[in-house]
Amino acid sequence: MVKKELTILNSSGLHARPAASLVKLASRFTSKIYLQKDGLEVNAKSIMGVMTLAAEKGSKILIIVDGKDEEEALKQLIKLIKNKFCEEN
């Protein structure tokens, strides 16, 4: 199991489109992927889950990945969040 805490950088936070791209990416991996924020844990492969996290810009989320492809999954997710979901230039 690997973990990493990250700050959401894009201005709209985990709204529809960023949430969708996160779910899409997470769903490519076989590992179990969870996001934690303020004690709430959601499945990163569920759009509804990710949206109920209400992660806005500046909030910290913990990514927890558990499974065969955990290293690669975490790497890719970090990249997506750090790149602000490619929504801003």
Partner: peptide, 13 residues
């Protein structure tokens, strides 16, 4: 309606 469609495709749900 894109949000509606995304919800319907939520595999976890």
């Amino acid at each position: 309606f894109d949000t509606h469609l995304m919800f319907l495709k939520d595999k976890v749900l």
